[in-house]
Design a protein around this nucleic acid. Structure first.
Lengths: 195, 195
DNA sequence: CCTACCGATCGGTAGG
DNA sequence: CCTACCGATCGGTAGG
């Protein structure tokens, strides 16, 4: 029955979405399955017809968000751009992710510590690879003298962290538009790298 | 009895220190008072002779760390420095805080959401004031044409977030020294602001 | 600082 | 999807 299948997966999707919102708001550990059930509109026990465990919910949210970042970087890497252009594209991508998929992105960057052992290990490896790919973009830029002599490692940390910090913008009065946010971020972080 | 008093306060200090380590490692919500008791080396019930509640522990850790940051900024503000010099001093101060008082600083930046209502409100106000003071340093720099035209708000967010991101350096292999870290951070973030 | 214990809540299962 | 319920664990207190 295709409609039943679709129904089930969209209900699962809804659970994941609500969970993402709660995990962001209160943290993974402080969110109970009863909280989630109430938000979804069912009894706690009923959640288990759609998901295996609380841990699985976190794992799905984080892994698919991380995969999306990874895929973007791999695509970008094949394009014929200067290092600076690549970095600018990356910053704009992450700012957009942070704004458009705020809950998922926030959960990934803040709650990953609560992944269970296997998934935690996978996530850490994936993130390390991601950082290393970004580092080599910067290294290339330094060799080509597009980018000043700087520690690629620190620069990557700085860029990724700056994006994470946009949670405060998201929380607050939003005195600035998403476009201005993106442009100012690029201005600060890219011109800090240019020779 | 002065020695008894001293003893008690140093025991309390030890509890706060161990708690800070656990809160950083596992998060506030995922740390139980039994975890803490075991780390301290007493039974859970005995903790309550030194502290009032789990919430109080978090409040003390965060408020005294935040106060230290505030005091530094107020002192700095009275000194006769250019805006760029002030920002550089600020960045170096925060990097040092992050490295030397890693656990407390981390708990402040990551676990503040779990403060109870009154203390949460106080913390948010305090942080907003801090950000605004930093913003006005940048605004002054723009007016004096030391600093390029940029959104002070985004710049402050970027700087403070970049420091927060050093947690990853702290966790990892530390392929770079604290001094290099500080210098590279300043290089990236300050030259991204200079005209 | 400990033993003993409280009521509340947790993630999750059985069975329908 | 629900009712009913499990064992485990939570923050915290009483009383010594």
């Amino acid at each position: 029955m295709p409609s039943a299948v679709k129904n089930k997966s969209s209900k699962k999707e809804m659970i994941l979405e609500k969970a993402s919102g709660l995990f962001r708001e209160k943290g993974f550990a402080a969110t109970s399955m009863r909280d989630l059930a109430e938000t979804v509109g069912v009894e706690a026990a009923s959640l288990y017809n759609h998901i295996r465990s609380k841990a699985e919910i976190l794992q799905i949210i984080i892994s698919r968000t991380a995969d999306e970042c990874e895929k973007h970087l791999d695509t970008l890497d094949k394009e014929n751009l200067t290092s600076i252009q690549k970095l600018e594209t990356l910053i704009r991508f992450h700012v957009k992710m942070m704004l458009n998929q705020f809950e998922d992105y926030h959960v990934m960057t803040h709650e990953w510590i609560h992944l269970d052992k296997t998934n935690l290990l996978h996530f850490i490896t994936q993130r390390r690879n991601y950082v290393q790919k970004m580092e080599s973009i910067i290294e290339e830029g330094i060799q080509k003298e597009e980018i000043k002599k700087i520690s690629p490692y620190v620069a990557v940390l700085t860029i990724l962290s700056a994006v994470r910090g946009l949670e405060f913008w998201h929380r607050s009065q939003k005195k600035i538009s998403p476009e201005e946010l993106e442009d100012n971020m690029v201005l600060h972080l890219i011109s800090g790298l240019e020779k």
